[in-house]
Simulated assay, not measured.
Amino acid sequence: MLLLAASIVLALSIGSAGFPFMKVWSILLHQLPWMADRPVAWTKLEEAIIVQVRLSRVMLAILVGACLALAGAGFQGVLRNPLADPYTLGVASGSSIGAAFLILFGLQTFIGMWSIPIIAFATGMMTLFAVFWLARSQGKMGIETLILSGVIVQAFLSAFVSYMVSLSQGVINEILFWLMGSLAKRNWGHVSMMLPFLLIGLPVLSYYSRSLNLFVLGERHAAHLGVRVERTKLIVLIVSTLLTAAAVSVSGVVGFVGLVVPHLVRLIVGPDYRLIVPISAIGGGIYVLWADTLARTILSPKEIQLGIVTAFIGAPFFAYLLKRRKAGLAKGG
């Protein structure tokens, strides 16, 4: 939490319009009700840059990262696979179809700024239920069948998204930029949209963390120990997908967060999901916050897409983790 707080202040201080560390603190403290009457040493424009532009983007980056990392922990726990991530069941591709469709036909604002988030969220959830329908047999969902169904649906939807990209002419860049993820041009309205999902998802996954610990023993052993296996799988998968769809609908496709962060947290605190779930939320927020800070500053005033930065950081890091794990297995670890 201290690292997250320090990251917020540092991220607010970094940008094309550089602000001293103390000025950022002073502006933030001035927003408190009992500090509002104090004399100020900054302009209204500087205050607007910190509070309306940067702070909203920083908070949104934290929420997106926390949701994706929580979803990753949920998927890895239910599927008993540390390589699982929020996009395993094709939710990202499903959300991408809704967004690409709106952009292709120029409908991005037919219900205001919420057009793409709402439609992307809806198509993401439709994808989840399609995967469940494919995977369910005699009232149960096997892990292998669920993963295979997700791979099939994701492959089909990815092809459909690519087809829409090939049809687009003047808006091809807009579609591709959304698919690469970004937090540019977002505001406090998007923060308000994301916050309820985190406030619901974190307690639910924390409640089921004990059951996720028992899943390591296998579904049959977990059932003998009192876990309602099918109900737990369904709830954790739905909540994890809700978190993923909410994040993707606002930020676009941002990869490797749900894959790398829970894996790193597991290396630090061990296999106990009672620790993995809450610490993944904090770690995911820090990860995406710094990735977004790099995205908007490393080539300032030009901005890199957030998904590119997370891939540049996440892919080599995860390759290192795999190499380390392989070496440990070779030595009998």
Rank of each mutant, 00 (worst) to 15 (best):
I8A: 11
I8Q: 10
V9P: 09
G18R: 10
F19M: 14
I27Q: 14
A36K: 15
R38P: 01
W42A: 12
E47Y: 12
R54A: 12
V58R: 05
I62M: 13
L63Q: 02
G65C: 10
A66M: 03
L70G: 05
L70A: 05
A71Y: 05
G72C: 06
G74D: 00
G77I: 03
L83K: 01
S93H: 08
S96L: 03
I97P: 07
G98V: 08
L102W: 05
L102V: 09
F105E: 00
G106P: 13
A122K: 04
M126K: 00
W133C: 06
I143V: 15
G150P: 11
F160N: 15
V165N: 14
L167Q: 08
N173T: 14
L176S: 15
W178T: 13
A184S: 13
R186A: 04
W188V: 06
N213R: 03
A223P: 04
V227I: 02
E230H: 06
T232I: 03
V236G: 02
L237S: 07
L237D: 01
T244W: 06
G255C: 10
F256V: 06
V269C: 14
Y273C: 10
R274A: 11
I282C: 12
G283K: 05
G284D: 09
T297V: 07
L299Q: 11
P301C: 06
V309L: 03
A311D: 06
F312Q: 01
F317S: 11
F317K: 01
K323M: 11
A327L: 12
G333P: 04
